[in-house]
Write a protein that binds this DNA or RNA. Structure first.
Lengths: 332, 332
DNA sequence: CATTTTAGCTAAATCGTTTAAGTAGCAAGG
DNA sequence: CCTTGCTACTTAAACGATTTAGCTAAAATG
């Protein structure tokens, strides 16, 4: 509210700014300031309502105590929850979070990275879009602490926090196979993101491991534009192709497919099941039997922050990849 | 990536920092820098990859081009969407957004306000919690641009962006009355937030306006702690009390009540309808007839940012209250 | 008693900008 | 020829902290 500076306090007490600075930073002892003086300063500071000016501090020390978070879309539940867990974890270490949404657009995300760097964030947590590789490489060269979350690139190293996409998908699909299903369709979100590729791989691996022949016809790729129409089309084709189960590689696709499948199940005797990687909270309510993977979102955030803080504190870029297991839940 | 300063450029060209600063800020003409020189500077700046240091700039000018956003919980869809729209709008004006979640806890939110002020945000967009009044008054006294969104306090003035809670609730409930329903229950989120009070008022007003006697027994208040159990209890009591419709004052309560009502409707001949203020996207899928209010979230965000920017630019605190109408949607 | 050490503090540079105030040189006005 | 005014710049002081190097007086050392 006011704007009391170190200088104000020092003038008031007739001492130097240096002394006040030392005291305020807890370096009184180290700098051999007498206890008497230390107390006087602390008292005065409180009395005058002194608050250090972050900007000045940051300018001088090069530490802003802010981390930048770049997600695909903060209004998406997954990223919103991730943001929350990052916020909570960051605050524990004394950091605040500045965020931006990239809409899976590399231009936007690199722009955001630039802006955040200009704002001198201490580190960046990024859910990278297709095409961000080079920019992330630049960050690494410039020794700017960074972590990729949820996605990464197979052609570059880095700090990575992801879930076990392949194994998770494998487990989900194998679970269906154990129920004696053989014709398992797949609707895949095909936007060049590595985690989706891995989920598809997991699907394939589950088939192979259980000696079911892989059928191209049963895998439908859906891209970002007109996702709704495309998803509907994919599901319809699969239903016509007599699938017993459909595996969706993300929650949004599952959501889009659900309606059609409910309709199908109401009209037909032959019931189609659903499984998906990730879900929405409400799916429990839908009275559709569904098996889905649950991502440990809050652990993703926690690990991301830990990795960032580790890098900031140690002043080195580690190269750590953390893979967290998903849970598998069944609604009957 | 690098760290080229004004001084570096000025040395390189043998001119003063001031000149370079003028050019970089587009004040060349105004400050009568020759075109020749202007071009030379711009070229050199590009060549050296100059980027202004935000911190230094902010320290000097007192403008950080950052706005602080305080919501109850960023992981909640409503706030996540709000955050997104604020982000998008802010970026148009050249601002970034730093956020924090208060969990409806005044201590947390005032703490966040303090931290954000220390970080010298140019303005604050706040979804205030119960008890934040005094702090907001302080902001106003200190002339710090601020806007309250989604909630406000009747005992203080300020800049406010909200939806028409009372009228909206009125319309929703009256819609039910027009369908010849008479026993209309209400489950209210009772946490001392003004918008909830207004929604309840709207409910009551709709009854009165349509000559239905208000019955205390049909209104259940649910608070924050153990919300799930409490909501269930409330719904059960209402069902036992032979209501025909239940009006939920927010989406989360509706969500919690849905399951029970679906069950009730399956078991009983007498069907109970649902209406609610606000919804979740998936409710369309539930095959429960429901009427709900749709908040113009993105307009809320847009207006909030506009109000903040207006204050920042004009250097005065306006006192503007913007009330946006909700839409009403019916799922059959 | 001269010298070194230490306790307790201060001066001044620095981070990278912005900006108020000034200056040198030249043209125009009276 | 002196003043005024303009052009195209520069100087230096901020902004509010941190931090290096140093200073003084008293205490310890030989």
């Amino acid at each position: 509210m006011k704007k009391v500076s170190l200088a104000d306090i020092s003038k008031e007490l007739g001492v130097s700014k240096t002394l006040v600075s030392f005291v305020m930073n807890g370096k009184a002892e180290e700098m051999r300031i007498s206890e008497e003086m230390t107390e006087k300063v602390l008292l005065k500071a409180k009395e005058m309502g002194y608050k250090a000016n972050y900007l000045a501090k940051a300018l001088r020390t090069g530490k802003s105590n802010t981390i930048g978070l770049i997600v695909a879309d903060i209004s998406n539940t997954f990223f919103a929850k991730l943001a929350r867990s990052i916020e909570d974890e960051a605050i524990k270490y004394g950091y605040n979070v500045i965020f931006g949404s990239s809409d899976e657009d590399s231009k936007k995300s690199t722009k955001l990275i630039d802006v955040f760097l200009d704002k001198k964030v201490d580190g960046l947590i990024i859910c990278p879009s297709k095409g961000d590789e080079n920019y992330i490489k630049k960050l690494q060269k410039a020794k700017i602490p960074n972590v990729m979350v949820d996605r990464y690139f197979s052609n570059i190293e880095g700090n990575i926090v992801v879930v076990n996409n392949k194994e998770g998908a494998f487990q989900i699909v194998e679970g269906q196979i154990k129920k004696r299903y053989k014709r398992i369709g797949c609707v895949n979100f095909n936007v060049g993101l590595i985690q989706m590729d891995y989920r598809l791989e997991g699907y394939k691996a589950a088939l192979v491991a259980n000696e079911i022949e892989y059928d191209d016809q049963l895998v439908k790729n859906v891209s970002f534009e007109n996702i709704e129409e495309k998803a509907e089309k994919a599901v319809k084709e699969l239903l016509e192709n007599d699938v017993e189960v459909i595996f969706f590689t993300n929650n949004h696709l599952a959501f889009l497919g659900l309606k059609l499948i409910k309709e199908h199940n109401r009209k037909n005797k032959r019931q189609v099941s659903i499984c998906s990687f990730d879900s929405y909270a409400f799916m429990d309510l839908l009275e559709v039997p569904i098996v889905y993977g649950v991502q440990p979102i809050s652990l993703l955030g926690k690990n991301a922050v830990d990795l960032i803080v580790k890098q900031i504190d140690s002043d080195t870029l580690v190269n750590e990849k953390r893979v967290l297991p998903i849970d598998i839940l069944e609604i009957k």
